[in-house]
């Protein structure tokens, strides 16, 4: 059992990161499933992280309360900015949400209370493994329920044909705002959890690169289901560690693997349609 505890003390942050990244990938999957390319989730994660960390450090709020605050603050903001921003679509929405992310980053960088570029130090490590497991499970369960309900169908219809969805009596703008806000909620929760096991947060972690990373996780894993984003998040978190033996070549090989996946599996690693077709073929071969 000694090896297990060794393994855990070395890699527990990595395992935590897989969980948090999975939540982030799922948070962008929600907006994608509604046909919205929103890149604001890294910023929402940052807001969740800063709000919760500041409440812990300055006001000494208990952990459950700071988690709730870190989850709700970005969701409220999403509700406010959603109405104007979601009038845009496609790349224009991507640009607007990226710009929003930059604004958030610059504000955090220049405020005194957030510690500016130095970030916040000494956040107590209140997050435990089971917290992340629990919230990830709740997120997955909630999203499974959503996907199988009238709301999931509405998202899909809006993604397929917005005008037709509107003329089916559907409040398209309301559903988009809901998807955007729910994404912010989950990203905020991930941020709050993340802040309370990394000890230290800085504005750098929530900028453009993170926004693209989150999108990459979801797209790489496959956006036509819930398993895809989780798979993508796990792979992108673990891969750099697994490739550590390559030393200087590590990030180059990491990038090459991503290119290969996108080239040969353009719908992502996990595509329910492809898996179903493969199973059918297998069954036919067995019969023959």
């Amino acid at each position: 059992m000694a090896w297990l505890s060794d393994f855990w003390s070395t890699y527990n942050t990595l395992v935590y990161s897989i969980g948090v990244h999975a939540m982030l990938a799922l948070s962008i999957q929600i907006t994608l499933s509604c046909g919205l390319l929103s890149l604001a989730n890294a910023a929402f994660m940052g807001i969740g992280a800063y709000v919760s960390a500041l409440l812990t450090l300055t006001l000494g709020w208990p952990f459950p309360a700071v988690l709730a605050a870190g989850t709700l603050a970005p969701a409220l903001l999403a509700l406010l900015i959603g109405a104007p921003v979601l009038r845009l679509s496609g790349v224009y929405l991507a640009m607007a949400t990226l710009a929003f992310g930059e604004v958030v980053r610059v504000i955090v960088l220049n405020l005194e209370i957030t510690g500016g570029p130095e970030g916040l130090n000494g956040i107590p490590p209140s997050t435990e493994g089971w917290h992340i497991a629990l919230f990830l499970a709740l997120t997955v369960y909630g999203l499974v329920r959503l996907a199988r309900s009238r709301v999931g169908r509405a998202f899909e219809a809006i993604k397929e044909d917005e005008v037709a969805a509107r003329l089916m009596g559907m409040d398209v703008d309301g559903h988009k705002l809901f998807a955007f806000t729910l994404g912010a909620l989950i990203a905020g929760l991930a941020g709050a959890l993340n802040a309370h096991y990394t000890f230290f947060i800085s504005p750098r972690e929530y900028g453009f690169e993170s926004a693209v990373d989150i999108l990459t996780m979801a797209v790489l894993g496959g956006t036509s289901g819930l398993l895809g984003p989780i798979l993508g998040a796990s792979l992108l978190t673990v891969l750099p560690e697994v490739l550590r033996f390559l030393q200087d070549w590590r990030m180059a090989v990491n990038g090459a693997i991503l290119i290969l996946v996108v080239l040969f599996l353009p719908t992502g690693l996990w595509d329910p349609h492809r898996v179903r077709a493969w199973l059918r073929r297998k069954r036919r071969e067995e019969k023959a």
């Binding site: 009238r150 169908r153 899909e156 219809a157 397929e160 044909d161 559907m170």
Partner: peptide
């Protein structure tokens, strides 16, 4: 129509 949804789902969207 919504091409990547089943017939049943297409109709159920109308019942939203």
């Amino acid at each position: 129509i919504f091409p990547h949804m089943s017939l049943l789902e297409n109709v159920m969207v109308g019942m939203h």
